[in-house]
Design a protein around this nucleic acid. Structure first.
Length: 608
DNA sequence: TCTATATCACCC
DNA sequence: AAACGGGTGATATAGA
């Protein structure tokens, strides 16, 4: 299908539904309109539930059009309907066509209508109807009719929006983005298994835990009032101890973690204060969206960032807050989860798309950081991560710095070295990878001259005269990485892999313990295939971390904090004999996650 | 009291 | 003017 007129029919769809935080959608009604004939279909909740499939064809010859289609497709899944083969999501298309631009009224349906000069349903009325839908049933006859009318008004809005947007839509690529919305709907539905027993205890005792964290640090110098860090007391403390402190232009002391770290080097008594500030950093566990079945689900906000990444709410999504909280991720009885991520994905993308032979070789070596140090002549050929760990680390930081467009001053700060050394390191990168640097500069020039950049599959970003060149230089890596993620998500969900969530350069999947190894291999195959397609042949490595019930997921960076918090928690509220959170919800009777301190018996798999 | 901005902390 | 890419979100402060 290369063009819209190749389709037998084009259907515009909208559902009204209720979706409690962390829960699954409860459809109230659906309206579908055939674009050419104008034929209208209005179904209420009972009619929807009585159907085993949508009452219209959804094969390759029929186009399904919606605004943020994962919502509609989520209702399809809830109704146990088959998924449409061809999806056009006008929200994804609107985000693509306006990526990097300021839009007057946001990127919702209303905003898209206004942007295209079309009249929209009044925002007030929209809000009222949304509130009614969220309230849920039972509805009076009048309310049901009002919901259907409102649903239809959105479909009519879509019918006006489609022809307005059509001239700028690149259909084959738009269908690829639509295809991802189907994958997103599946991931949003599956969600992430959470140890709700421990989550509930954390929620109940969180304020007590924070107080205990303060009390546990003997050297807090009375700088905290409860758990609030008092800036005026801190300034008195600095004066009393003759500590010169950096100030912001605004006249207040710089309190960021970097400042604390560097100052603590010179004045070690500051270290415990830094630790404490770090531990107490704001956290709202209440917003974590966990459904009655103990799974973390939230809208992924597909195409939410200008590089086309997902942008789920950090408060609702378990991968948003600090890493130690990922200890709450725990497979249920007889199941396992696996976190599978690409290793040095952006470096691999840069190597493939720039065709820099040295960078290519460095990626293929399996350890680009070590390879870079060797290519630059800083270490001998026989050097290893173990023999030259410190030098490898410097070259690693250099590679990461280059990917973000960092300058010598910032790199020096990061490496705690002098600026001349940092400049030298960056210069080594330029000398080692000259083809990459020409490619990177060409992308920035292209953006400045033509006003936009795009990925291999046509994800756009607009760039005005004031655009940040570092942002433009980074775009190819980040945005093509997002393309790779989306393609892998499509392949995996279409092949029946239970993908719980995407995490920028990784996926969390789930399977019965007996099948997890095979599912990990299948997922790695999807990710390998996606990388080959996006990068014209280069296959990127992935690593997998498997966690089986009754263990919990844990990021190594979070182990210490998790242990501290759990220690305090067990003092405040001894662990119940049996953690029964799963049997509460009828999922299993073997109990849930054994003990809050059960970490991972983690098994690593690499496909390199 | 509400809203806008600045700063900070966290994620990949 | 600064020079670390893409984000979300909490909190403090200033101004209407």
């Amino acid at each position: 299908m290369a063009a819209l007129h190749d389709f037998r029919a084009i259907r515009l769809l909208d559902f009204e539904y209720r979706q409690p935080d962390g829960g699954r959608p409860e459809p109230h009604c659906m309206v579908a309109r055939e674009f050419h004939t104008g034929r209208l279909l209005r179904l209420d909740a009972d009619e929807l539930r009585s159907l085993k499939a949508p009452p219209f064809p959804i094969d390759e010859e029929n186009l399904f059009v919606a605004y943020y289609a994962s919502a509609e497709l989520g209702c399809f899944l809830e109704l146990d309907w088959p998924m449409p083969a061809r999806v056009l999501d006008l929200c994804a298309e609107f985000k693509n066509s306006t990526s990097g631009l300021a839009v007057p009224s946001g990127r919702g349906l209303l905003g898209a209508l206004i942007y295209h000069g079309l009249d929209a349903l009044a925002a007030v009325e929209k809000e009222e109807m949304r509130a009614l839908a969220m309230r849920g049933g039972p509805f009076t006859l009048a309310e049901k009719a009002a919901l259907l009318d409102y649903c239809q008004s959105d479909v009519d809005a879509l019918a006006k929006l489609l022809p307005a947007m059509l001239p700028k839509i690149d259909l084959p690529r738009a269908l690829l983005r639509g295809r991802y919305m189907t994958a997103a709907a599946r991931m949003e539905r599956i969600g992430i298994p959470i140890d709700v027993g421990t989550l509930d205890r954390l929620r109940r005792k969180w304020s007590g835990i924070r107080c205990a964290l303060v009390d546990d640090v003997r050297c807090n110098y009375g700088l905290f009032d409860g758990i609030t860090f008092k800036v005026d007391r801190f300034e008195q403390f600095l004066a009393a101890n003759d500590i010169p402190w950096p100030y912001l232009p605004s006249g207040s002391p710089a309190l960021d973690d970097d400042t604390f770290r560097s100052m603590a080097k010179a004045f070690p008594l500051l270290w415990s204060i830094r630790e404490l500030r770090h531990a107490l950093s704001s956290l709202r566990l209440n917003d974590l969206a966990v459904g009655p079945d103990g799974r973390n689900r939230c809208m992924l906000s597909a195409f939410g960032s200008k590089t086309g990444r997902n942008q789920p709410s950090n408060a609702k999504f378990i991968f948003g807050p600090s890493v130690w909280l990922r200890g709450l991720i725990a497979p249920v009885a007889r199941r396992a989860v696996a976190y599978i991520d690409w290793g040095q994905q952006e470096f691999g993308i840069a190597a493939a798309l720039s065709s820099d032979p040295a960078m290519f070789a460095a990626y293929l070596s399996g350890d680009p950081y070590l390879a870079f140090a060797k290519q630059a002549g800083a270490i001998p050929e026989h050097a290893t991560k173990e023999s030259h760990g410190d030098i490898r680390e410097r070259f690693k930081q250099c590679i990461l710095a280059v990917q973000y467009g960092m300058g010598a001053e910032s790199l020096a700060l990061r490496l705690s070295c002098n600026v001349a050394d940092a400049r030298q390191l960056l210069e080594l990168h330029r000398r080692t990878y000259p083809v990459y640097w020409r490619w990177s500069q060409a992308a920035v020039d292209h953006a400045m001259l033509r006003g936009h950049l795009h990925t291999v599959f046509g994800w756009l970003v607009h760039a005005g005269p004031g655009a940040n060149p570092r942002s433009l230089a980074n775009f190819a890596m980040q945005a093509n990485g997002a393309e790779m993620m989306r393609l892998a998500a499509c392949l995996a969900t279409e092949r029946g892999i239970r993908v719980c969530a995407p995490v920028h350069d990784a996926f969390l999947i789930e399977a019965p313990i007996t099948q997890i190894d095979a599912e990990v291999a299948r997922m790695q195959a999807c990710m390998a295939e996606a990388s080959r397609i996006v990068l014209g042949g280069l296959e990127l490595r992935t690593d997998a971390k498997i966690v089986m019930h009754p263990d919990r997921y844990m990021d190594k960076r979070g182990v210490e904090m998790w242990g501290r918090v759990m220690g305090i928690l067990s003092r405040l509220e001894p662990v119940p004999m049996r953690d029964t959170h799963l049997s509460h919800h009828g999922i299993g009777t073997c109990g849930g996650v054994g003990h809050p301190l059960n970490l991972i018996s983690c098994k690593g798999i690499s496909n390199g």
